[in-house]
Amino acid sequence: MKSFAHKLRTITGVQYAALLEYRAEMVLWVAGTVLPFILMGVWMTASAKADLVLQPVEMARYFFATFVVRNMTLVWVVWEFEQQVVKGTLSHWLLQPMDPVWRHFAEHLAERFVRLPILVVIGVVFFAVYPDALWTPGLWDIPIALAAIVLTFIMRFSVQYTFAMLSFWTERAHAIEQLWALPYLFLSGMVAPLALYPQAVQQVLVYTPFPYLIWYPAQKVLGLPTAAGSVEVTLGMAVGVMAFWTLVFILANRLLWRIGIRRYSAMGA
């Protein structure tokens, strides 16, 4: 176990150094996530004209939080894994005494550390331009928000890594991720705070993984209560739902991995 932690730390460190070479691009990649700010603008105007549960300044905070959550939970493993299978480079990793998942995991982890400073800079600029949006988090809000982001990342990673397993059967595994991106965009709270959705929709959504990908961690980042319709999403419930979906996908993942790897080696990898 200790040696595993050591390995993971080493790989993450190496990946971090490698990714540092891409910091100029990283600035653009982060700047590329402009959708939260576009939606922020529209919702601020809309909430100034009508009573939409949230005030304009609350809208600004909410969408800033979705920007942070989205950047901190970004996952791209399906594209990378697909390339490895198509080009056969997966074989190199299979020969090493470590499950390839950790290599990918470490790479994502390392990328967070390159991305974080850029997020901080954008945050500083944002609050300098719009100081009213600044809020003071409570003592416990920060660790809870961090924990929520970590859980969200793990769930997203498990889901996408499971889609990645389909690469053993098709050259377009990322297509399924593109389908998944639709509910991720429209049902996660990315385009509108969940409170604005119809009651019935909210009540159903809290049992799906989607609101926990954006809305839940965003509310936690803001230190706001998490209620959807008449359902109060307690800490226990959030952890329960996220753990459930994460486990479902991990189980599916291991099953597909076993069958898939047999298929891969049978084809003469």
């Binding site: 919702w43 809309a46 965009l185 429209f186």
Partner: peptide, 25 residues
């Protein structure tokens, strides 16, 4: 298929924005 989903989502979003107000600006 994804285009269709995107379309439905986009219309839904505009519906959300205008749900309590007939016009904005």
């Amino acid at each position: 298929f994804t285009s269709l989903g995107n379309l439905a989502g986009s219309i839904f979003l505009i519906h959300l924005i205008f749900q309590r107000v007939p016009e904005i600006e």
